[in-house]
Design a protein around this nucleic acid. Structure first.
Lengths: 344, 344
DNA sequence: CAGATTGTGTAGAACGTTCTACAATCTCTT
DNA sequence: AAGAGATTGTAGAACGTTCTACACAATCTG
């Protein structure tokens, strides 16, 4: 069809020629570095505008900064991650940094492959959200590029950490249910995986649950079903807990998405919510707020966590080497899936 | 704290030195190009393995391929996009290509900025999902880098198109509702925006709706509320339609997420579903299948669409210049939100 | 056995930036 | 008037690849 003459890119050399200066001068203007007069700055900027020049980020990446931040997720579908992404993006909105998201699935192998791919693409910083790749691999990554880990409570010198106070979050839930009169309060968690992480969010949440139950002298009522944070996992955990003779009157699901699975299990068994069973989720995702669900959940301010991650990352890029841990305070959002336990 | 000696990257020169050959030879082995003996291939590959060498994608990008595909979305939260992403990723799984996702929001300005950013990062191909940036900007983008547009039915020589047969999908919905006995079938759509696109999915769907209504001699019952494909938009559209005196007995929402908003409106008005109102969504996202919702919806095989997009992109990258349009056949998934209309 | 052909390897110039040296000019000091 | 700074500009070497052009050797052809 048409000749398809690939339009050659406008480069810094074109700008330099147009403005009648050296490429070095243009580069200085671009980075507003020292050693350039006001007059030249103006001339160069005018040329840039006239030619529609945009710096080639990949080329920049070869020498230092590519102005790209990578966000590594296991799964793009978790709406909570949308909040985190928005936080990161908003925090970087006024800068030249661009956020690119990689979705690697849950497999540690794929995740570390993706992290490598991001490094190979000269990214300036990485945000790893609840990575399933091993801790030593994360540390190796963080030695190469500034890195923030979101979710896991395990810290290390090499990376910064942004977590939710999952211990407090779990306490909020248990306290709420106890106040309503519940005693047989069960919990759905996720099974421990390999990878040397000892304080994943789900572990801290179930520790918090246990501890809160203990505080209320309900140690005997502790029941935990560990599957995975997914609809299917929630369903299996729900069946496991609800099929028992000493059926709980309330279930604290470790994640909203798992709560949805519990909901399915409850429907199957003909249980009414909150009449027969109270249910609480975690994350306060959009799923929790949709009308027919209206799930009581714990909000962990994903947007703030993302924004914090971006801030820490920039600090690291600017040379901070000491490691930082920030912890966000969770809030309980009470909706319609919790109420008093059924009469005996 | 620790000295933090940035570990220098293993480069092609290191491999060459280790194997006792030239960098050109190593490069040939990497690209398995012509002109290299079996013996040398083996020697180089062994060196690569021993040194743990990984090619620097950004540097590669400066000369041709960066082995990176960009997927541009308006919003990471739409679960339908998760299907598309999985399709693209799976189709490229056996290759060296990596998929990176950019989430630009709905603003055309931000979208085209992100598309530019992807070009600046030397991406080899772009998949634009229902872009809101103007058609001429998409065409300009496509002139620079192989591009596939998913969703919009408007075609152009410069890019390939992957669409769902939204016309047929709308017909499936209307036929289903008419078969159940409905006549007052309303539709929620999205307001037309700027940008020279004339056949966005929502437009084709509402055309299909109108046409199907006509086929059933129900032209007089056509009611369309155009807001946006979002929970809030669905709510507003739902209120608009349900507050009328001639309240519809069924609503065909243009997207699952909008259907959820309609659901909220119906709950507010005390309408039972499907007793008082039948409701159908579109996209068959995970939201549709969760237990308390159980939404009848139209499945448009997002995974296949993504895989197709990846295939078309690779063909373009390999030199095809003729433009291709592929259309997927939608399927109606009947769940519990549709039933016979209420008695008079 | 001369010339042509094929096979295998290397040198070195791109690609578009950044940034270290250094050169040239100006402005003060004394 | 002669340095000493300060200011403003430029040349050119990186960064890690790819790929064209060419050199050399081995093999084939008549």
């Amino acid at each position: 069809m048409k000749p398809q003459i690939a339009v050659r890119r406008v480069t810094i050399a074109d700008v330099a020629r147009h403005a009648g200066v050296s490429t070095a001068a243009v580069s200085k203007v671009l980075r507003n570095a020292y050693g350039v007069s006001a007059e030249m700055t103006e001339r160069v900027q005018s040329s840039i505008a006239q030619l529609g020049y945009r710096p080639h980020a990949a080329a920049r990446g070869m020498r230092g900064r590519s102005f790209t931040i990578g966000l590594l997720l296991d799964n793009i579908r978790n709406p909570f991650y949308g909040d985190i992404l928005d936080g990161v993006t908003d925090a970087l909105a006024k800068t030249d940094f661009q956020v690119l998201v990689g979705s690697a699935g849950f497999s540690p192998r794929h995740q570390s492959r993706l992290a490598d791919a991001m490094i190979d693409r000269a990214m300036d910083g990485l945000v790893l959200v609840a990575p399933s790749m091993s801790r030593s691999q994360v540390i190796a990554t963080a030695k190469t590029v500034p890195t923030v880990v979101v979710g896991h409570h395990d810290t290390a010198d090499e990376y910064d950490s942004v977590v939710d106070d999952d211990m407090a979050g779990a306490a909020l839930v248990v306290d709420h249910l106890v106040t309503l009169g519940h005693q047989r309060i069960a919990h759905t968690s996720a099974t421990a995986t390999e990878g040397q992480w000892t304080r994943r969010p789900e572990q801290v949440r179930s520790d918090g649950y246990r501890q809160a139950m203990h505080r209320h002298h309900l140690d005997g009522a502790v029941r935990i079903a560990a599957t995975s944070y997914s609809e299917e996992g929630g369903y299996r955990a729900g069946r496991e807990l609800l099929d028992r003779p000493d059926r709980p009157t309330a279930i604290f699901a470790g994640a909203d998405i798992a709560a949805v699975g519990v909901l399915r299990a409850a429907y199957e068994l003909g249980l009414r919510i909150p009449g027969d069973l109270s249910l609480v989720g975690y994350d306060n995702t959009t799923i929790a707020s949709i009308a027919p669900i209206n799930l009581t959940s714990v909000d962990q301010a994903g947007h703030d966590m993302g924004a914090t991650a971006a801030r820490l990352l920039r600090e690291r890029m600017d040379g901070r080497s000491r490691s930082v841990l920030t912890s966000a305070a969770p809030r309980l959002i009470i909706r319609n899936t919790t109420g008093p336990p059924p009469g005996p």
